[in-house]
Amino acid sequence: MISLRNVSKAYPRSGDALRGVSFRLRKGEFAFLTGPSGAGKSTVLELIHFQTRPTDGEVQVSRYNSRRVRRRDIPALRRRVGFVFQDFKLLERLTAAENVAFALEVIGTPRREIAGRVQRLLSQVGLAARASSRPSELSGGERQRVAVARALATEPRILLADEPTGNLDPDAAGGVFELFSMLNRLGTAVLMATHDADFVRRHPDIRRLELEDGRLARDSAA
């Protein structure tokens, strides 16, 4: 489903972010992407989301290959790959329901279907009762759940999460992780970047891809 083959990424100013990274994530798999800040976790997620291209090597996501992908195919790829951020990236002027509806609207969902799908998505993340609240009225954990509902709007088969629990207290972080686990049990592959070593240690059954200084230092599945 996701395959990185000898991927390197260098930026003009900051230099090498990744060096020769290779791994595969299979359909329906869950993995942590760990490592200290600056190890290259966000770069890996951006490469899989085709926000940037490798300097060397290749990234394959479903049938899309970083060497051959056409610019006009990228929106279709991104609908298959949901993305959740540490800072939620919700629109403050919109309610929770409107934030989710916004994603549905911009991908061309028929207007008559939007309200029903928003309701289902918010129920799925346990936030049906907070549909009309604005982000500023929600807790951190609730905001992240809205962000997850929005990421699920395109019915992705892969969910990328960049430090999704980084701004949350332990209880809220546990709740968001449980949500990811539930989505994974329903068949969605999840790749979750985190630098919280304790959090990762508490879930030893989950595959761990450990980055160090832009290299893949350990893969618990290897």
Binding site: P75, A76, V106, I107, A153
Partner: peptide, 17 residues
């Protein structure tokens, strides 16, 4: 900017944006 970023992330087409 924020709206555009979200549109790009969820897969809105370039022309739509």
């Amino acid at each position: 900017g924020e709206e555009i970023e979200i549109m790009q992330i969820v897969g809105a087409r370039e022309g739509y944006i």
